[in-house]
């Protein structure tokens, strides 16, 4: 009886391992972008926008306005790369500060960062890959 239990447990572990190994390429890409994006967020964004993306008072806007992030997803790369100034409305509150530019960021870094931000803090918009970032960055001035 004991042996049967042990064997079936072993089988279960094997099946789990096999299933995990079969994670699709898309899922792997997403996970890779997300993890790298988290590191970039901590280094470049977290001081102002906060660990939980809640911003700080009326000084720095939160990143929890899912509607804003969804609607402006194609513009996020340009905002990160070129900075932002002027009035914006987030979660129904007005912000009028200045966000510094991160001109040195590559398209890949921007893609990773946007993937992280738009899939954290209550957002769920899936992978934003390097091709999407390259296309959007090209259109920054337009």
């Amino acid at each position: 009886m004991k042996r049967i239990i042990t064997l079936s447990l072993l089988l279960l572990v094997c099946i789990t391992i096999i299933f995990n190994a079969c994670q699709s390429q898309a899922e792997l890409d997403y996970a890779r972008y997300y993890v790298n994006g988290k590191g970039l967020y901590e280094a470049h964004c977290q001081n102002c926008h906060g660990e939980d993306g809640k911003g700080l008072g009326q000084l720095y806007p939160p990143l929890t306005d899912s509607l804003f992030l969804k609607r402006n997803r194609t513009k996020l790369g340009c905002i990160i790369k070129n900075g932002l100034s002027g009035k914006i409305e987030i979660n129904g509150q007005e912000f009028d500060g200045q966000m510094p530019a991160e001109t040195q960021m590559t398209n890949m870094e921007i893609a990773q960062l946007v993937t992280y931000i738009t899939n954290s803090f209550g957002n769920k918009n899936g992978l934003y890959d390097v091709n999407a970032a390259a296309a959007d960055i090209k259109n920054c001035d337009k």
């Binding site: 001081n47 102002c48 906060g50 700080l56 008072g57 000084l59 720095y60 200045q98 510094p100």
Partner: peptide, 15 residues
């Protein structure tokens, strides 16, 4: 006030 390094973290905590 224009500091984006440690100041926002400090004043988030000072709050």
């Amino acid at each position: 006030t224009s500091c984006t390094s440690i100041c926002p973290v400090m004043h988030r905590n000072m709050l």
